[in-house]
Amino acid sequence: MDSLARSQRGEKLAQVVMWSSAALVSAVFLWMLSDLVTNGLGRVSWEFLTSSPSDSGRAGGIGPIVVSTLLIVSVAMVVAIPIGVGTAVYLAEFTSTESLLGRLVRRSLDVLAGVPSIVFGLFGSAFFCKTLGLGFSILSGGLTLACMVLPILIRSVEVGFREIPDHYRLSAAALGLSRTSTLLHLLLPAAAPGLAVGLVLGIGRAAAETAALIFTSGYVDRTPESVLDSGRALSVHIFDLSMNVPGGTPNAYAAALVLLGLLLLINGAASGLAHRWLGRNIATL
């Protein structure tokens, strides 16, 4: 009878601990969110999003920084999408899981997914900036990010292709379609959900990145005239304002809120799409 009472007490205790740990985690998240919203929202306006920063960013807006961020992310995606989709198609449709090239590519992408962003930064600065002579530029930053987002892009697109039922391929073969036209007219449209999820996740990953950009795309906060100019990403702007500019905190709040809002939107869309279309959780890991 004693042991019954004890195990009931234990059960109660476990319940309390579980609910309070969940409450703690939610509280931290809400604390952060509300802190950023209350301190940042007052400054975010159309004016702030479009005007140039002045006084090292203490005053003015983030117009040129938004332009640079969009350019860096676009360069990254324009380079990553053809390579990523091609690789995913190869892995999902044209090779068995046992083939040598398939295994090597998969293994190397797993390692690439684990490489810390600062090491990508070192690589980008040695390869794109120095060896290829692109210097501190939006192109260098975008190319570095392209390498970084490839693994997550490939993984999602591959899942999209594997979700397509086999009778699509069999019917196409029975109709005498070439594999190329099967791919272009049948499989690519059917894999659109996976493509969309991969694309959105890749954009989210690229937009969130800071460490890989500090010494590849640089700090210049003017509007870039071409992709060979240096441009400051939004994340780098937040870092610079909060660490190197005394009195930059109010504008850093606003910039952080803009970036956070953007990413919650992007990642929310990605996970919504993944749950709905792929019926599984690729997660933003």
Binding site: F239, S242, L259, L260, S271, N281, T284
Partner: peptide, 17 residues
């Protein structure tokens, strides 16, 4: 899931302030 997508610079900024 949303927490996992918040950029590290935002975490760092919030920690700092």
């Amino acid at each position: 899931e949303l927490m996992s997508g918040i950029p590290s610079v935002v975490y760092g900024f919030w920690g700092l302030v």
